[in-house]
Design a binder for these strands. Structure first.
Lengths: 288, 288
DNA sequence: TTCCATTGAATGGGTGATCCATTTAATAAT
DNA sequence: ATTATTAAATGGATCACCCATTCAATGGAA
């Protein structure tokens, strides 16, 4: 069996590529003879290797945001792989938010500034796959937001508070004009601004991802039932006042009680709260 | 210009696919004539659409972990796309931890149980890209771990405490035998167990991702300098005792002071703390 | 000269055909 | 019955194209 050659005739000009991959390690010769060398698993596929190489260059600082990779055709040749498999790797990195591919002359694969929205997608997938539950997510959100309040009280700058103020004004306007769904959008932004005011992007990223999902449920609820949180802007103002005065205890209490009331709103009529309604539109949050 | 046909001769049998994609919307006919219909942007690429469709099926619950997608050749035909572009989509989903591809007869694309390690990769990329800083990461870790202690005190079960106990014993053994690097591995696991004891997988996932990176720095430090945290297991025991007695204040204080001493250890000789040393090996954490 | 249309090359997007390696079930040989 | 062989299905990878977009260079008209 080991000597069986391909029955096909032409066989073309394979092994023509300069850097032929070393993966083809000749399984035939190692048949049953004198080699106690257990080559490790070796299931690593080409595109994984490519991703790894590129990430390596990134970690090493050789590649930085804004840099451009060689054109696909050229890079493929450099790596000694086909263009298709290179594209699989580039696709993966693009989905990971590491690259952005741009067409045309002067196009190419550009290293991106990290896109923090990517964590949202992780959360969504985990939820879709049933790895995490809505309950765990809500619970985590409450706790993390409590932490956020502490940090925001400690670190929020004037500009942060102003941005929150402006957000509340937009909320009031939307309320007056009865644009309920816009108000939900304002809420999403409120928490984003609040998270940013901690001055810690890691925390902000976590809060954003968890809030993004939460807001989908709120959105679905508001869109389907038309209910709306009463005195929203008013509560926000009270909270912002506490935050401005660095009153952690008060701010924390206000937010927690608000979150609880939102939770109650969501939980009445739980039938409408199905996962797929909230997660249905897969794309938002990925808008560019 | 609009009537210019392809100069090439053969042109092959294109448009032969049954479900030809509707993307080819005939740009020629819409030249300058009577159509005020602004077709929306439509820059969406095929593979994105495919990913979206599959994620949609997931969110809807039509696809569940363990399910198998049709074979590539067949699915490509169903979707009316080439196998290559389908593979790009599958690759992306695989990297996202949603799918796993398996070779051979009875192989195929299987929906996975969500892999929480995926968030680690997001954090690593963010760090590599300079979107977040090591400082922010450490800070976030301290705060989140403080939260974890609270939750663990409230929710840790007997089994969780036992697992922590067992971990400490392994730590002691590694210490006695001078296996410093193994001890770092024990530490990583300690925090993983601690995070799990909160009973909230979202929190656990966050802690794990942040800890995973932190431990790379510790590992690099220990590997290069040979220094080691003094009285580690002892401190762990004290902490575990506090946790067992649900003494939040004490446990929190103990952990915080430990984290601070680790931080001091890392920060002396900051030259060895470069990013690329810690992030160099891209793959770990993705071991299967 | 200045401005605008045309052209052409580079680049990512996408296709189809073909081959390889692995895995498993069915089949044949012992 | 057990074991080796074969065959088929499937993911992995390659090659050779073609298309659409983008943009710099070119060239002609104002």
């Amino acid at each position: 069996m080991s000597t069986k050659s391909s029955p096909r005739a032409p066989q073309r000009s394979r092994t023509a590529s300069p850097n032929r991959r070393e993966r083809a390690v000749d399984h035939r010769a190692a048949g049953a003879a004198a080699a106690p060398t257990f080559k490790p698993i070796h299931t690593r596929r080409t595109f994984e290797e490519i991703c790894e190489r590129i990430r390596e260059q990134l970690a090493l600082g050789v590649l930085k945001p804004g840099d451009k990779l060689p054109a696909e055709r050229e890079l493929a040749q450099q790596l000694g792989v086909s263009r298709n498999v290179l594209r699989e790797a580039l696709r993966s990195l693009e989905m990971a938010g590491v690259l952005r591919l741009q067409k045309g002359v002067k196009g190419g694969a550009f290293i991106q500034q990290g896109d923090t929205r990517r964590m949202n997608e992780v959360m969504r997938d985990m939820l879709s796959l049933g790895t995490i539950s809505v309950r765990e997510l809500s619970e985590a959100r409450v706790h993390v937001l409590d932490l956020v309040v502490q940090l925001a009280c400690a670190n929020a700058r004037r500009a942060d508070l102003d941005a929150l103020e402006a957000n509340i004004e937009r909320t009031e306007l939307a309320t007056r004009e009865g644009r309920l769904l816009d108000r939900v959008e304002c809420s999403r932004e409120f928490y984003k601004l609040l998270a940013a005011s901690t001055g810690n992007k890691v925390i902000a990223m976590i809060v954003d991802s968890v809030t993004e999902i939460h807001m989908r449920f709120v959105y679905a609820k508001v869109a389907s039932s038309g209910v709306a949180m009463a005195r929203l802007a008013e509560k926000r103002r009270q909270f912002l006042a506490a935050l401005s005065e660095r009153d952690v205890a008060l701010a924390s209490r206000l937010l927690r009680s608000h979150l609880e009331s939102v939770q109650r709103m969501l939980e009445q009529d739980p039938g409408a709260m199905s996962l797929h309604v909230a997660l249905a539109d897969v794309q938002p949050g990925m808008r560019r």
